[in-house]
């Protein structure tokens, strides 16, 4: 059965600093919303795929997010795992900007 996707308002665009990440919870799910130094926005699952630690506490370096607990890394624009102990890619979500608000499709 096809999954029904919806656009959900996550935050104000300026709620995220450049080259940073914040947490967004929706229902029983949690996400990480990123803003690059160039002002683009991305969204991924909130928890690291290695162990259950939230990426919003981590460090953004360019398009890389580093997990706060074990320093595993992902490219948050693609979800690709980039450094052990991370071995499994991160799920990403489409993002759009409307009226200075960030929406993610989930």
């Amino acid at each position: 059965m096809q999954e029904l996707l919806q656009w959900v308002e996550a935050c104000e665009a300026d709620a995220i600093d450049e080259e940073d990440v914040i947490r967004f919870d929706h229902g029983d799910r949690t996400f990480a919303i990123y803003r690059t130094a160039k002002g683009s926005y991305y969204a991924t699952d909130g928890y690291c795929t290695h162990e259950k630690f939230h990426l919003s506490e981590g460090l953004v370096m360019g398009t890389i997010i580093e997990c706060p607990k074990h320093n595993g890394r992902f490219d948050y624009t693609t979800g690709a795992a980039k450094r052990t102990p991370v071995c499994v890619d991160l799920r990403t979500y489409p993002v759009k900007l409307e009226h200075n608000k960030v929406f993610i499709q989930i």
Partner: peptide, 10 residues
């Protein structure tokens, strides 16, 4: 040891 140390931090 890389994984052992990850567990030590977890």
């Amino acid at each position: 040891w890389r994984w052992s140390h990850a567990r030590h931090h977890t």
